[in-house]
Design a protein around this nucleic acid. Structure first.
Length: 609
RNA sequence: GUCCACGUAGCUCAAUUGGAUAGAGCGUCGGCCUCCGAAGCCGAAGGUUGCAGGUUCGAGUCCUGCCGUGGACGCCA
């Protein structure tokens, strides 16, 4: 009796189908779904339409037959056949109440996954000497939410921050800092970011400018300048290469400087992670430098397995279903980021023993990951150290755009940094909370400045995270702070508010008998109850599809359904004491599911706001 | 040029993975606070789901071809 109605209906209808059509139809999916409209019933069975042709009957006749073989009188009040062969199902009210009592427990009806897996999630991916920007925001928020939902169903999740902390770019920054005579002990992240950018453009030279210069027939003097630029770009690269070799060989001064720029970058990152309520710290750092001495081993394995070949001096891996090979070693002997990714896969599957590797990286790297995953399979890393097959998933997310549909910029026109966005959102949230607290009737009126600031941060950050997690990851999305922090409609604060109101009611109610009978006779009570019972399947579907917007959308439906219930069913002022206690139980359960869900999304839930 | 995503209301997005009359929010218009928090609730208007075919009981969803947008295409990460 502790089973969810949907699960029990599946069993009952599956048995009924077998009873109606014979043993060969055992195990047929009965296609039980929540009713599309409350007026139609509580659930529906859509199996008859698909099956009708196979057995040479009309869908309606088959539906009739299924109902005749149905044995679930303790669960189902009534059924009717509608439209092309839908079976609409009305649940017994006492069965609904029993099911709600069953999930009114610490687990909230969410069952653990069996078996529990070891899952590695690659997220955040900060580059040393660069400011974090909105791309990191998405990777971090999404990755952390995925980690939380997988943890919620009992998996062993390892968050790994694949830092860009090694290689030529780092050497180039050091070279630039030397050239500028920057005092490394006192530099800020923006100094570093500036040096990084200048190093990049110096090394890039201006080949694009050269080509367009030739095309536009600019004068010889200009071409000469561009040529000189390209020559100096080569100088920069050469110097950086030498510097990298010295660093690789353990030069003590360089090593110390390298650590200094990492420290500056990471302390800013930790601050951002803290602000965003991300469950990650230094223990999750495993950057490119960690893999630097493992690259040779990767190449050796590919050579041993004959999974690579030499081409133009480079070493490449071929794929049988596409032309384009993947480079794993340059002709000068250097390695590439594909090699590092392969080394990471080897560690994650062969040492950590992961059976799933998830990469929360932007959509532009789709092809890259396809190559890396296929290459890993060629040398057997699609089986982990326990012999289980490994599932590799790239969770691509779209770009963050400004209101003009172009990559997000600040007002001053530069690329928006993560920190600037976070502080802006917090400022707006805090302002809003403070303004509302001025009202003597507001529950936040008696709170002090510090408390209001904490709530303001929860509201501002909650708005940003909800906006990101509430729509399909793979699409680009428009980052509009004004819309997010309007705090009305489909926003994070809408959910936080619904919960705060529930907490307020519970505070006023004081203690109550949380084993009292549950009553779901009123339409709004029934709708709320049905909604709450879906939590288990929503969590599992999200863990399966890795789509956090399912949870966001569900929580919104919960809040909406609760708000309707709240509007028409007085709780504290209910007609009888029995109904009052029953509604308190419903409100309490709703609040816990909202808090559970918001916690999975990494959104804080203030008791007052 | 080749390959890969994505085109849904004026705007921002959903659609239980093939199910019934495609739903929300913002914005617009109109209602609801002497009553548990109005950051809320109720209602109205707004659609040839880019276009054209196909698959079947049934297509926003699957297959084909166009159109449009964005992205990736060997020694950067």
């Amino acid at each position: 009796m502790t089973q969810n109605p949907a699960a029990r209906l599946e069993k009952a209808f599956s048995a009924a189908i077998e009873g109606a059509l014979g043993k060969s139809f055992a195990g047929t999916d009965p296609v039980i779904r929540a009713a599309t409209k409350p007026t139609l019933g509580d659930f529906q069975c859509n199996a008859a339409m698909g099956l009708a042709k196979r057995v040479g009957q009309t869908p309606q006749a088959l539906a009739e037959l299924i109902i005749e073989h149905l044995n679930a009188d303790d669960l189902i009040e009534s059924t009717e056949i509608a439209g092309p062969g839908f079976i609409n199902i009305h649940l017994r009210t006492d069965a609904l109440a029993d099911a709600l009592i069953a999930i009114d427990s610490p687990a909230l009806g969410v069952s653990p996954s069996d078996p529990s897996e070891v899952i590695v999630i690659d997220l955040c991916g900060v580059n040393v000497a660069k400011q974090m920007h909105v791309g990191h925001l998405r990777s971090t928020i999404i990755g952390d939410a995925l980690a939380r939902v997988l943890e919620r169903v009992g998996h062993d999740v390892r968050r790994e921050n694949h830092l860009g902390d090694w290689g030529l770019p780092i050497a180039m920054v050091l070279d630039r800092l030397h050239a500028d005579g920057t005092a490394l002990s006192s530099m800020s992240l923006s100094d570093l970011d500036e040096a990084y950018r200048r190093a990049q453009s110096a090394a890039r030279g201006d080949e694009a400018g050269w080509k367009s210069g030739v095309a536009k027939h600019v004068g010889p003097h200009r071409l000469f300048e561009l040529e000189a630029q390209n020559a100096s770009a080569n100088d920069v690269r050469t110097r950086a290469g030498e510097l990298l070799v010295a660093l690789q060989d353990g030069d003590s001064t360089l090593t110390e400087q390298w650590h200094q720029i990492i420290d500056v970058t990471l302390s800013a990152m930790y601050e951002a992670l803290e602000l965003m309520n991300i469950k990650m710290g230094s223990e999750n750092n495993r950057g490119e430098s960690f893999y630097r001495d493992k690259l040779v081993g990767v190449l050796e394995i590919f050579e041993q397995r004959n999974a690579c070949r030499e081409d133009d001096g480079a070493i490449v891996v071929d794929f049988d279903n596409r032309e384009r090979p993947m480079l794993i070693r340059k002709s000068d002997g250097g390695y590439l980021y594909a090699t590092t990714d392969l080394a990471a896969i080897r560690c994650r599957t062969q040492d950590t023993g992961a059976s799933r590797c998830i990469y929360v990286v932007d959509a532009r790297q789709r092809d890259h990951f396809r190559d890396v995953f296929d290459a890993a399979a060629q040398v057997g890393w699609d089986k982990n150290s326990s012999g289980q097959s490994v599932e590799f998933v790239h969770t691509p997310f779209g770009s963050v755009l400004g209101a003009d549909k172009k990559p997000l910029k600040t007002r001053s026109g530069s690329n928006a940094t993560l920190a600037s966005l976070l502080y802006e959102a917090i400022a707006r949230g805090t302002h809003e909370v403070q303004q509302r607290s001025n009202d003597p009737k507001s529950p936040t009126h008696e709170l002090n400045e510090q408390e209001l600031r904490e709530i303001g941060q929860a509201v501002g950050i909650g708005a940003i995270k909800y906006a990101d997690l509430s729509n399909d990851l793979s699409r680009d999305y428009v980052f509009d702070l004004d819309r997010m922090v309007s705090f009305e409609g489909d926003t994070g604060p809408y959910l936080q508010y619904a919960n705060a109101r529930i907490q307020s009611i519970l505070r006023k109610a004081g203690s109550f008998d949380n084993a009292a009978p549950l009553c779901v006779d009123a339409f709004e009570e029934r709708q709320l109850g049905l909604m709450l019972l879906r939590w288990n399947s929503v969590v599992h579907e999200t863990a399966r599809t890795l789509e956090p917007h399912r949870i966001a959308g569900y929580l919104r439906s919960v809040a909406e359904t609760f708000n309707r219930f709240y509007q028409s069913c007085p709780i504290l002022g209910a007609e009888t004491d029995a109904i009052r206690v029953s509604r308190l139980r419903l409100a309490h359960l709703t609040g816990r599911i909202l808090e559970d869900g918001l916690d999975i999304l990494g959104i804080a839930t203030p008791d007052r706001m």
